[in-house]
Write a protein that binds this DNA or RNA. Structure first.
Lengths: 257, 257
DNA sequence: CATCCATGGATCATTATTTGATCCTATAGT
DNA sequence: ACTATAGGATCAAATAATGATCCATGGATG
C-alpha cells in the first residue's frame, strides 16, 4: 500500500455515521501509527480534502471534495456511463439490450445495442415504453414512489397484445414480484413474440431512474437463457448505479395495494 | 510538498473544461516526472479517486469522490457552516449579525448573533423578513432568478415605516445597486432607527439561497463603520459559500426592469 | 486537589518508499 | 520506413515516510 493509498484510505473512514474523527481514534481504527496518521491527515488537510475543527481538533471531510465531485458528475451523464455496460451485456447475451430513462415524456428508450443474430428484437431509440406493458416499465414501477405506481394502477391500461396485463390485480402482482426479486420479466405484453428481462437503475434515493432490459424472441427463450439474462441485467443495473453515484443505492420498493 | 499532496494536486487539474488527461500531458502540466505522475495516478486509481478509460488510457476523476462529497454535504448544513462565520463578524463589528435562509415561508432568520452593546438591534430568530423592506431581502432579490424579483416588484409593497420602499421604481433601483455592488443597505425600511448592510449567500447555481446582515442603530452609523460592515458582510457571505460548496459560485444577478 | 490517563502534537534516527533517467513497445503522422 | 509521441516498466540513488519516544494539555477519578 503506497503512502498515497494510505492517506486516501483514511478518507473512507468518514461516513454519514461517523463524519468526524479524533486523531488517536482514527489511527487505532486504521491501524496506522499515530504520528503517521497525523502526517497523512495534515497532508490531506493541506489539500482541502480534510478539515480540522479548530476547537475540537477533530477531523472532517473537506470542502475540496465538493468541487471534484461536481466535475466528475458533470462529466458522467447516464448515457456515457451506461453504454459500455450495455455493450458488455449485449456481447454476453448476444441479444438486444436497451436502456430507458424516465423523464417528462415517460419512460424513454435512450440507447439500444442490437443483437447480431438475424432473428432479433428491434427496439427504436426514443421510443416511449408503456409502464404496464413492458418489462422495463414494470421494473421501473416496482422501484418508484408508491404514489406513482398506485396512480398508474388506476389508469386505464391499454392492451397492446392479448397478453398485456390490463387487470390491475395482475399488474399489481407483477410489480410485487419485481420489487421482491429485483428484476421483472415481460412476455409479449407489448409486442407478440418478444420476451424480456429488465432491472431498474436506481438513483441515490433508492428509486428507479430508468431501466435496462434484454429482449429476445420468445422462441429462443429457455430456462438457462432466462437465468443468464437475469444475472446480466441485474449486474449491469447495479454497475451503472455504482458508477454514477460511487456506491450502490439502497432500493426503495413501491408499496402497491 | 509531500507525496500525498502531490497526488492530490493532480486531482485539481481535472476541471469541467479539462475532465480528462493523458499521462504525458498531465505530467507536463503538473511538472512532475512522467514515471512519478503515473505512480501517483495508479495510487489514486486504486483508491477510486481516479479512473482510467480502458480504451483511450486517459484518466478521469473517479466515482469514489461522489460518496465522500455526499458525506461532507450531509454533515454540513448551512447553519453549521455559517454560525462560526457570523460569530466572527459579530466580534469584528460588535453589532447584531443575522443570517436568513430563503424557503417555503419566505426569507426566514435562522440565526442571530447579538451585539454586546446596550443600545443594539434585536432580531428574533424565525422572523420572516419582507424582501422589499430589508437589506437582507434586497440582497436576496438582487441575486434571484429574474422572474422572482420581477414578480415581487409587481406585488403590493407593504409600508412598514415612512422609509419603506413602496414605489416599484425605487425598489428597482435598490435591487440594481445591490446587484452591481454585491451588497445592499437598508435604512429604516422595516423598523425605525435601524441601519443595516447585507450580502447574499450564493448557491452553486449563482443564485442567492439566503443572506447575512449586520444591523446597527442608525445613530451609530458613520461612513467608516458602513465601509467596515460592507467588507465584513461580503467576506462572510463568500466564506460561507466557499465552505458550503468548495468554491465561490459565479453570481447571477437578477435582471429587473 | 493531586493523580492518572488519554488526547493532540513534535522530534529525529532509522527505514522503506519514492524518484527519475533510461529503456521498451505501440501507434499515428509524414 | 522513419520519426515523434504516447503509455508503461525498471532499478539504483535520493529522499521522504516511519514510529518509538517525548511533551503539554485537559478531563476524569479517587
Amino acid at each position: 500500500m503506497s503512502t498515497v493509498e494510505k492517506a486516501i484510505s483514511l478518507l473512507n473512514f468518514f461516513t454519514e455515521d461517523t463524519p468526524e474523527w479524533g486523531l488517536s481514534e482514527l489511527a487505532r481504527q486504521a491501524q496506522f501509527d499515530k504520528a503517521t496518521t497525523r502526517r497523512l491527515l495534515v497532508a490531506l488537510a493541506n489539500s482541502g480534502l480534510i478539515e480540522q475543527h479548530t476547537v475540537t481538533r477533530r477531523y472532517q471531510l473537506g470542502a475540496g471534495l465538493l468541487r471534484l465531485a461536481r466535475v466528475r458528475e458533470s462529466h458522467f451523464p447516464l448515457l456515457q456511463v451506461a453504454v459500455p455496460v450495455l455493450r458488455d451485456v449485449a456481447t454476453a447475451t448476444d441479444e438486444t439490450v436497451h436502456l430507458s430513462e424516465f423523464g417528462a415524456r415517460g419512460l424513454v428508450t435512450v440507447h439500444v445495442e442490437e443483437s447480431t443474430k438475424a432473428n432479433r428484437v428491434s427496439v427504436a431509440n426514443g421510443q416511449i415504453l408503456p409502464l404496464h406493458a413492458t418489462a422495463s416499465g414494470i421494473a421501473f414501477l416496482a422501484f418508484s414512489p408508491s404514489q406513482l405506481a398506485k396512480s398508474y394502477l388506476r389508469k386505464s391500461l391499454t392492451a397492446f397484445t392479448r397478453h398485456t396485463l390490463v387487470q390491475p390485480a395482475r399488474l399489481d402482482d407483477a410489480i410485487k414480484a419485481a420489487a421482491e426479486h429485483g428484476y421483472s420479466r415481460g412476455e409479449q405484453g407489448y409486442e407478440d413474440g418478444v420476451f424480456s428481462i429488465a432491472a431498474p437503475i436506481l438513483g441515490l434515493d433508492g428509486y428507479a431512474i430508468g431501466s435496462i432490459a434484454v429482449a429476445m424472441p420468445l422462441s429462443r427463450n429457455t430456462k438457462a437463457t432466462t437465468e443468464r439474462h437475469i444475472q446480466a441485467v441485474r449486474g449491469a443495473a447495479q454497475a451503472i448505479s455504482t458508477r454514477l453515484f460511487g456506491e450502490q443505492p439502497t432500493p426503495r420498493q413501491a408499496r402497491v395495494a
